[in-house]
């Protein structure tokens, strides 16, 4: 994949940062406004999808190598599980909101009024963003070759990438 025309490349190089920032905003304000970890994570991944479409796969892979994405994926899920365990440790009940109004008491609808909820949103955002990135990457790597009279065989582009 070589990428698209210069117009597309220029515009997407401006827009990619905005999309990424918007994803972060959706995650951080997820407990106050519509959105949250899942929606924000999808937006984060979609900024990479834009890059993948406009510039080709190689640039994206140099920017976020697959082993790193895979580790971020595990880290997000691990952090989310740990928030539940920390609830058990500090609050006595699994997944209890152990930070709620604890250290920085604030009015409802202030930024840090949610206790552990923003932390959960961040963990979920990381998990969803990284795993959706991996899913879309996998979709671009595999393709079908039609050969031997129309028999389909799945081929991985650059098979060495698959053995991460």
């Amino acid at each position: 994949m070589k990428g698209m025309t210069v117009v597309v490349k220029t515009v997407s190089s401006w827009v990619k940062v905005l999309i990424f920032l918007f994803g972060i905003y959706i995650i951080l304000f997820g407990h106050l406004t519509p959105g949250g970890g899942f929606a924000g994570g999808v937006i984060l991944a979609s900024s990479y999808v834009l890059l993948m479409l406009a510039f080709g796969r190689d640039l994206v892979e140099a920017n976020l190598p697959l082993p790193v994405a895979s580790k971020l994926d595990c880290l997000g899920a691990f952090l989310f599980a740990m928030i539940g365990v920390l609830g058990l440790v500090f609050g006595g009940v699994f997944f209890v909101n152990f930070l709620y109004q604890k250290y920085v008491p604030q009015e409802p609808f202030d930024l840090v009024s949610g206790g552990a909820i923003p932390l959960s949103n961040m963990a979920i955002g990381l998990k969803v963003g990284a795993s959706l990135f991996l899913v879309i990457f996998a979709l671009t790597v595999f393709r079908y070759d039609f050969q031997d009279g129309g028999r389909k065989t799945a081929v991985a582009d650059g098979a060495e990438q698959q053995k991460e």
């Binding site: 595990c74 691990f78 365990v85 699994f94």
Partner: peptide, 20 residues
């Protein structure tokens, strides 16, 4: 033990293992 431990132990371990 608290009941979620039955789910939490394998779940947490499952996300640690692939990093190794």
């Amino acid at each position: 033990v608290p009941l979620p431990v039955f789910v939490a132990i394998p779940l947490v371990a499952a996300f640690v293992l692939p990093v190794l």
